Simulated scan of single mutants.
Amino acid sequence: MSAIETAKELVLALFTAAFIDHDPEAARKLVTPDYIQHNPQVPTGADGLSALIPLVQQSGMTVTTHRTIAEGDLVVLHSTFDNAEAFGAPSLAAFDVFRVADGKVVEHWDNLQPIPEVTASGRGMTDGPVDITDLDKTEENKQLVLGFVRDVLGGVAPEKAPMYSEVYMQHNPNLADGIDGLIAGTKAWADQGFVITKFDPQIVVAEGNFVFVASDAVVSGQPWAFFDLWRVEEGKIVEHWDVVSQTPTEMAHGNGKF
């Protein structure tokens, strides 16, 4: 088994222990005692994780993981949490990022967003293709997406948007398909007073045709987190998923969102 597959297996075992089997002791064995937590509401360390698991079980929340991608020591899970009223909404879309080292999970970041009943594109926040292909193009695809993030989302050269994509299938619930939908949605957001002045990638994980980027952003003076996943096909971005949330100023630890 490759190092990537081993890392995925470890992270999926932790996710299963925590959110399906609800087994704090099994979860504790898979993380380091000083497990670094970036979820704003969960205390850091193995103790913080163990204390969360009974609350998840009592809430009746369930999880379905749709995509698992990995690169180096990082593993990304793209999931849906249902029966999640205790955590803010009936259903939540989520990206979880885990860092592994020496056979243990050592660090965790995540972003969660309520799933609306109706979306602008008609697509759900987590549906669509899941198969990983084009492993030989991982680095090429990563650089393509990072260029798109810099030029279009970061505002360096938004006029270059068409060169990155010809077909842009959108899963952001508020945006229509296509680059035109992205630009129109961004303008509408700005017209409502939400102006992005910072978009700084912090975590990048690419595997074949999928590229994930977690960015630290400032929107109208407030900190936000944008967790985005793109699918690339034949040198063009063809599909996009994201989970976006405002970053709270007070957290259950001193680790920050990133």
Rank of each mutant, 00 (worst) to 15 (best):
L135T: 02
L10F: 11
L49V: 11
A51H: 06
F199E: 03
N39F: 06
P248D: 11
N83A: 13
S2M: 12
R231G: 05
V76C: 01
A120Y: 06
P24F: 08
G221C: 04
N172F: 07
H171S: 07
D96K: 01
H78Q: 10
D21T: 15
P173T: 06
L112I: 13
I53K: 01
D102R: 00
V56E: 00
K137P: 05
A7T: 12
V56M: 11
A3G: 13
G122F: 08
P54F: 09
S59H: 01
P24A: 08
D34E: 14
E71K: 06
Q143T: 13
K142A: 04
Y35H: 01
V243G: 07
D151K: 10
A86Y: 10
L77V: 07
G193N: 08
T80F: 03
L52Y: 02
F87E: 03
L30D: 00
R150N: 14
K187L: 13
N83P: 12
G147D: 08
F81W: 12
V100M: 06
M1K: 01
Q143A: 12
H78C: 00
E233S: 11
M251A: 10
R67W: 09
K257Q: 12
M1A: 15
E234P: 05
I179A: 04
Y168G: 03
T62C: 04
V218L: 12
A184C: 00
M251S: 12
V145R: 02
D131A: 14
R123N: 15
A70L: 07
L55Q: 15
A26D: 09
I4R: 07
A27D: 05
L77A: 03
E250D: 15
